[in-house]
Amino acid sequence: MNADAVVQAFGFRLSRNASGRLVFTSATGEVFEGVVPVRAFPITSPEEGFALVTAEGRELAWIARLADLPEPDRLLVDEELAAREFLPEIRRLVQVSSFATPSTWTVETDRGPSVFVLKGEDDIRRLSHSMLLVTDSSGVHYLVRDHARLDRASRRLLDRFL
């Protein structure tokens, strides 16, 4: 599919400029620099519902599924998402400094090992029956996708805070 065909089918084209920013060209030739892809449901349904928004936060296009985008554009969006989204998923609790808060947690995440301070039990929020969102003292969020599926030791540590 050549570039013009892309414009016709999806009404826009994406590219990356020298400053590393995403550039959006609409079917009518309008150009927006610094476009950002955003997931609409980053936690519950990360693969569905994307928006391309301007640096000011205005929506330019809605993409129901990423797979529907043609190849070069999809890669650009993927890259941009990877550089922008930061929600480490806790895979294992290695150690907690104490069961009373504030407590320092040593964890393994899908983004490597990390250490953070949990200020209070209230900073662990239940998103659904099994999903937890942990907020550390500096405001970084960590996700526990299914606390029942952590290993036994992690579950036992986590259980003391729930």
Binding site: F12, E48, R58, A61, W62, I63, A64, R65, D68, L69
Partner: peptide, 19 residues
Amino acid sequence: DDRWTPQVIPATRAAGGGA
């Protein structure tokens, strides 16, 4: 904010079609 109307790419293979 209304100068630009967002373009919506329909889900061509969307199972269940939320829209």
